[in-house]
Design a protein around this nucleic acid. Structure first.
Lengths: 332, 332
DNA sequence: ACATTTCGTGACAACGTTGTCTCATCGTTA
DNA sequence: TAACGATGAGACAACGTTGTCACGAAATGT
């Protein structure tokens, strides 16, 4: 900036005024400054600015996702970006990989960069460790899962209700022998989905004890093996609900291997690309990552702008998408 | 920091020393400072630090992608993050949406945040506008496409060679009536793929004029319609090469609608999830986004560390993955 | 015993900005 | 003509750090 000032033959503060479009600069001076700044290819240093400026906004926020490469996460990321970029806010994105240590380290890294706020997917059992930051007035919005041990805004899918819809759908097509394949119950969303599914079956008069429940499935392969085992048993289920993308893929593979794709009904939680190109198309409970991301961004902006209402959890409804696999009738 | 110093009853510089693990502080003082900093929940302000520090590293870089939600992009993103996070470098990610204006605006936004370097997917016809920044010594690595009008490192896939491999594969299975379905030739990668495909056919003795070439396909629907039209013509091709993910999806849909999935061979550029679950599995030329991301990160780090060798383009080889659709024999 | 080195520590300026204040100039009004 | 407000511009301090230097005390060497 000093250089620009020197070149334009004005004071440093005048350059600041021009760069920030502040009033009180004559058009002639203004042009001279702009000319000089272009010539020197000068650009304001935001960091230095926000250092001095009161309020100290850095116009950047931190985003913590299970993985930036995960399609569900990256759609949330995209929606957040779209909403925030309108305000000129840049997004630091990072992947957690289910590692609570990483979670803490990344929170610290973002804090050190003085982000204006954070959006995070909690993974540790307890998020109380961020209380100091949170009460220090750093806006935070949790997504996908509600935080434990801390009062903060959260944006989540109606996991239980969505799973219940899947249950009702399958029962409505006459199924009475059902199976639940799920992720580890360590994860809040997985617990909710199981609960919603089983409770709805209970209400439909299907004893929970007759439902085959298999949990702890974290990837395609484990889900595939689990499904193969159950489907080859004496009394295999006529319908399966899988609580998550990768689990759904595993079950699909098992069904295909056994040639049972058209015999055993399947409803998966989470939509995915090409689901309609499968044979049959896969019926799913779709989440709406765009809406989650957008809502999270809006809440974060509101908090940044000073909204200090009581923290709330916002629920984004899921949606049943009928494609064929969930409408197969029971065959014994 | 002043507060911590006051609480610990030491000078401000001593706190700085402790926070930065600098030597020359007695263990007793050190403990007092740590205690005080914990009590006040204090965290170093990186921005202020790098303001003073010579060299001015901010430990953050900018990443410009077509879209953070695009699976190919987000895998690159992930690989970059993994390599950079080892050095404590945070990543600003942003989506371009094929908009050259956005590209410029985002570059400016990152510059204002004084990133240590940038990784970008060029979209404008010409990247000369970043020359001032680049020569200002800001490390830059281009990915996916080579930059035009500027000398800089680039990491790309062997588009032409990959497409040629697809051509050779189809010809090797006896096809002589082929079609090329591609994205707009505005895009460098699309041009390269077309060139590689056609040149290889030429070398195999198939006159280029007999190859049906359809370009300008930007989404699933336009590709589907184009494929439907060609496949319903008098002399439909017996094999199709699609130059990109979305185009491949469109062709797949058309083939399925016409019940021709097992009759017309298909090789797509770009791998995708569940490609092996299709019927038949889709043979593809797979790119390696993880390797592109990793290599780009390594090049960027090298540049940040002062490597001033001549800019180079690094080519990451693609790979033919055989799954069935590309091995169908011609049927007339 | 004194000179010299080492160690722990703090004062101070500077990094690139911006908020506050002051000042000179000029045109207007009583 | 004197007083005044408006306008354009710069001097200066401060933001939270860290590099440089200086200083006193203890440890070491002669």
């Amino acid at each position: 900036m000093r250089h620009v000032a020197a070149l334009a033959g004005v004071g440093i503060k005048t350059v600041s005024r021009v760069m920030n479009d502040e009033p009180g600069v004559s058009e002639a001076t203004r042009q001279r400054v702009l000319q000089a700044s272009r010539q020197l290819n000068y650009q304001l240093d935001m960091a230095a600015g926000s250092l001095r400026r009161s309020g100290r906004q850095t116009l950047s926020i931190g985003l913590l996702l299970p993985s930036v490469a995960n399609p569900f996460s990256s759609e949330i990321h995209r929606a957040l970006e779209d909403t925030l970029s309108e305000r000129g806010i840049a997004v630091f994105a990072a992947s957690l990989d289910d590692d609570p240590e990483r979670e803490k380290a990344l929170v610290a890294a973002f804090l050190g960069r003085r982000v204006d706020g954070m959006v995070l997917t909690p993974i540790g059992r307890n998020q109380a460790y961020v209380i100091p930051e949170h009460s220090r007035d750093l806006p935070m919005v949790f997504i996908d899962r509600e935080p434990v041990g801390i009062e903060a805004d959260a944006v989540v899918t109606d996991n239980a209700a969505g799973a219940a819809r899947a249950a009702a759908h399958l029962v409505g097509h006459g199924h009475t022998r059902l199976a639940y394949f799920g992720d580890t119950p360590e994860i809040q969303t997985a617990r909710e989905r199981r609960r919603g599914f089983l409770e709805q079956l209970g209400q439909a008069g299907i004893p929970t004890s007759t439902v085959y429940v298999r949990e702890g499935l974290r990837d395609v392969e484990s889900a595939r093996l689990a499904a193969l085992a159950v489907l080859s048993s004496d009394e295999p289920p006529t319908a399966i609900f899988s609580s998550q993308n990768l689990v759904t893929f595993g079950v699909m593979r098992a069904l295909k291997e056994l040639g049972a794709s058209r015999r055993v009904a399947l409803v998966g939680f989470d939509d995915f690309a090409l689901s309609d190109m499968m044979d049959p198309g896969i019926t799913v409970i779709a989440q709406h990552p765009e809406r989650i991301g957008k809502l999270a961004a809006e809440r974060l902006l509101a908090r940044i702008d000073g909204d200090d209402g009581a923290p709330r959890t916002y629920v984004v409804p899921s949606e049943l998408i009928v494609r064929g696999s969930g409408e197969l009738l029971p065959s014994y």
